Computed example of a mutant assay.
Amino acid sequence: MKFTHKMTALAVVAGLGTAACTTDAVTGERRISTEAGIGTAAGAVLGYLAGDILGGRNDRTAKIIGAGVGAVAGGAVGAYMDKQEQDMRRATAGTGVDVIRDGDELLLRMDEDAINFAVNRYDIQPQHRETLDKIASTLTTYDSTYIDIMGHTDSSGTDSYNQTLSVNRAVAVRDYLASRGVQSARMATVGYGETQPIADNSTEYGRAQNRRVEIKVVPVTQNDVNSAGY
């Protein structure tokens, strides 16, 4: 599985060529740009924002529709995600959550103040629950979305151990969000182990940054519903 994720990331970089993450000087909005050179920040987000949602899209859409979640009509998707992005930014301002926008998808990247795991642990620490509560509140307000939850580790330990630990971290966040009202049918989890670092694993600060979970939010569209046979 880890080999597959590495190959996916390489394929994304090769396909997009010169892509980077840029910040609007006025709004503070972060987007993926294809006009700038590839940088560290861009390389760290390309693999998450490109490609399909986790798991089979039709099966997952069926579960979501079965849970009573509606879809967003094609022409309204952009406005729906614009509003969700704005509300998510307001809700998480000052918490350490970086809301990254690419097309109609959002990536919630959290620094160590927002959510960080102790070494070899995957439990949600008390000081991080308020931030997750704010995220959960916005996700429940905008319920016509798929939610991909991605766990990561630092490079300490074996590959196989880190893979399991990263899955457990993603599951812990999923279960917490579910306890705060986010519908389980909308959420899927994956662990990337140590294969997607965003900081230098040779320092304690860097390792702390890499022990993280990120959340990708993708709209459920009418096309998804039609493809699933509804």
Rank of each mutant, 00 (worst) to 15 (best):
G17D: 02
T23Q: 11
I32F: 08
G37K: 14
A14H: 07
A9N: 07
G15I: 00
T18A: 09
E35R: 13
H5C: 05
T23F: 07
G28A: 05
M7R: 15
R31V: 07
A41N: 09
G28N: 05
G15L: 09
E35L: 14
A11M: 10
G37C: 07
A9I: 08
M7A: 15
T27K: 02
K6N: 10
E35Y: 14
A36P: 01
S33R: 00
T34K: 11
G15P: 01
H5Q: 14
A42K: 03
A19N: 02
H5T: 08
V26C: 05
R30E: 08
F3E: 15
A20R: 05
G43L: 12
S33K: 03
A42V: 01
D24Y: 02
E29L: 08
A44P: 02
H5R: 13
I38A: 08
T4R: 12
A9C: 05
A41Y: 08
A42P: 00
A42E: 09
A36D: 10
R30Y: 01
V12S: 00
V12P: 00
H5F: 15
A14Q: 09
T4P: 03
A11T: 11
A20E: 01
I32H: 01
A20F: 00
T27E: 02
G17Q: 03
L16M: 07
T40P: 04
T34P: 00
C21V: 14
T22M: 06
T23Y: 00
E35K: 11
R31M: 04
V26F: 07
A41F: 07
T18P: 01
K6G: 03
H5N: 11
G43S: 05
I32S: 02
R31I: 01
H5I: 13
L10P: 03
A44F: 01
T8K: 13
C21D: 04
S33F: 02
T18N: 09
A44L: 02
T18Y: 09
G28T: 03
C21R: 14
A25G: 07
G17E: 01
T8D: 10
F3Q: 14
I32L: 15
E35D: 06
T8S: 13
G17K: 00
T8P: 03
T18Q: 13
R30F: 00
M7N: 14
T4W: 10
I38P: 06
V12Y: 06
V13H: 14
A42I: 02
I38Y: 08
G37H: 06
V12T: 04
G17A: 00
T18K: 15
V13Y: 04
A44Y: 00
A14G: 14
A25Q: 11
A25L: 12
E35M: 07
K2G: 13
M7G: 05
A41T: 11
K6M: 14
T8W: 15
A41H: 04
V26K: 15
F3V: 10
V13I: 09
G43Y: 02
K2L: 15
G15E: 07
T34M: 08
A36K: 11
